[in-house]
Design a binder for these strands. Structure first.
Lengths: 147, 147
DNA sequence: AGAAACAGTTGCAAAATACAACTATACATA
DNA sequence: TATGTATAGTTGTATTTTGCAACTGTTTCT
């Protein structure tokens, strides 16, 4: 019975959290005049330095056709370079251009500032606890993917 | 300097969390053969018993036109009833039909089970901490809505 | 009474995404 | 080595999801 109550509260909290995270996620992109998916693509590419359409597709949980077209846009905007992977020519190697690196840097910095501000809203002594908890929760969801 | 590191870790964790929550959120709807927005609409209506298009629009962070059409679909599927609000005829009063109540119940129960499973993945002694932390985080984001 | 504000609907358009068919490459094995 | 199978990526097509703007009807404020 205790668990039911706890899970109910967790659900409520999650509901709110999802809503707030939605704002956060959107702000990441809107500020830079690109779409959310483009933004995620840039960030993931920037972090790995090299990435394939397929990896992006899994990472972003999008169909590979969607990713392929997003990449196309970014290539046309001189943000990504797309080359065949010489070691396995089925793949393409995606990398940021110089312009892409700049944009990536801007996004990263903006987010760093933003998250610093968020951290400061959390009482000092709770900060580590919050991070740990988010991890625990995240993993718990991951293990229990329903359906 | 410490804060920068902490915020970096928080960002990483959030990134993962968003991904996992995406699965969770989608599973809520997919299981019942309705769209995510329809599902949210049903749940919010079920909780409040009565709700207006406008309230839904704020709650779900969607344009009122989008909500209006979603409601239209649900009315056509005999899940919602839509009546003019007699105390202020600009508003409509939305309520679940009997069929809607059943569906709402199904969703609620499924989610209750699901969240119970998630809770069980989290060590007992950490559960309260996790809920508290999610709240803290959620509020922190809310206070610092950027842009 | 008239103006301003607000809820909801509808026309129109776009943005985002998926599915399926196709191409090119790689790999396994017979 | 030939051939069948698996895989990555692209493209055609369709659907879904959503938002903006214009409009209607209602209320509220002055």
């Amino acid at each position: 019975m205790k668990n039911l109550d706890t899970s109910q509260r967790l659900r409520e909290t999650t509901r709110l959290l999802i809503r707030n995270l939605g704002f956060l996620d959107r702000s990441e992109a809107v500020c830079c005049g690109i779409t959310l998916t483009q933004c995620h693509t840039i960030v993931e590419t920037g972090r790995r330095k090299q990435i394939s359409v397929n990896e992006l597709s899994e990472l972003l949980n999008l169909d590979k056709s969607t990713v392929s077209r997003t990449v196309e846009q970014l290539v046309n905007n001189d943000i990504l370079v797309r080359q065949p992977d010489l070691s396995d020519r089925r793949y393409v190697v995606l990398q940021l251009t110089q312009k892409g690196e700049v944009l990536f840097g801007t996004i990263e910095q903006r987010m760093a500032v933003y998250f610093t501000e968020i951290i400061e809203e959390i009482p000092k002594e709770k900060r580590e606890q919050v991070i740990e908890s988010l991890q625990l929760f995240s993993e718990a969801i991951h293990k229990k993917r329903c359906c």
